[in-house]
């Protein structure tokens, strides 16, 4: 028996929005710890890693580990049938292992819907990602990062991110010319969410495809802040924290000189 109740049901809409450009299907792994998902896009250039801890749900029961192969397009259709203020419960019954049920309850309990969705048998590749001490971790407002990625993609297909203790610089070049955006570390801020904070061991310069970074910024509604973790010649980690529950992380392989 698996049952996970989420009063803030609209969170699932935001999570699906944040995966839709990268994934069409994925396996949700459910255990007593929580629900997690790890999946690469079809080109294997980027990876989505979602964690929703069990203690972040309003009720959570998972008697035994369960892997649910989900067509995310189908799940999106079903989740769109919920209202933003609905309570969402995800249920899976051991006696009926090929389906998952989504139940939506209006806040006043006057409307209750349930949708049963067929599960898929997915043969997904799982990557072992080691714990890494990154050379640079930048925390910045998620909306600011979204704006930078959007603006850089007006200029070119790739962005070079150069991070020093003074700040973070994004550079792009293309047929029309070049663009640079430099954001300094905040001197002092009243609101933590508006701060730009750079923790640095060594300066790093890396180049990434903007197409994927723009896909990652679909998660902007999940969190006020985003963190970018970088080390020389390794994948970038872009993390959006999901308050009191976990995170949505994206990994992106860099572009490197041959």
């Amino acid at each position: 028996m698996f049952e996970a109740r989420l009063v803030q049901g609209s969170l699932l809409k935001k999570i699906l929005e944040a995966t839709k450009d990268l994934l069409t299907e994925a396996t949700f792994d459910c255990s007593s710890t929580g629900m997690s998902l790890q999946a690469m896009d079809s080109s294997h250039v980027s990876l989505v890693s979602l964690m929703l801890r069990s203690d972040g749900f309003d009720a959570y029961r998972c008697d035994r580990n369960l892997s649910m192969g989900i067509n995310l397009t189908s799940m999106t259709k079903i989740i769109k049938c919920s209202s933003n203020d609905d309570v969402v419960t995800i249920k899976a019954d051991d006696n009926n292992p090929d389906t998952v049920t989504f139940m939506f309850e209006s806040p006043n309990q006057e409307k209750v819907s349930d949708f049963e969705m067929k599960l898929m048998d997915l043969d997904t590749e799982h990557l072992g990602i080691p714990e890494t001490d990154y050379s640079v971790v930048v925390k910045m407002p998620a909306q600011e990062f979204q704006r930078v990625c959007r603006d850089m993609s007006q200029i070119g297909e790739s962005v070079t991110i150069c991070c020093t203790k003074d700040g973070i610089r994004f550079s792009a070049s293309g047929d029309l010319g070049t663009g640079n955006i430099k954001i300094a570390q905040s001197a002092n801020v009243d609101k933590e969410e508006e701060a730009v904070v750079i923790e640095m061991q060594e300066a790093v310069t890396l180049t990434f495809a903007l197409r994927y970074l723009n896909f990652f910024t679909r998660a902007t509604s999940l969190s006020g802040q985003v963190s970018l973790s970088m080390s020389p010649e390794v994948p970038l980690v872009v993390e959006y924290k999901i308050a009191d529950m976990g995170y949505m992380r994206y990994y992106l392989a860099p572009k490197i000189e041959d």
């Binding site: 294997h44 990557l127 072992g128 080691p130 572009k255 490197i256 000189e257 041959d258």
Partner: peptide, 14 residues
């Protein structure tokens, strides 16, 4: 001159 790497260049399947 720069080539897009894949994640499998960096991480192993488990």
């Amino acid at each position: 001159p720069q080539r897009q790497r894949t994640l499998t260049d960096f991480y192993r399947s488990v």
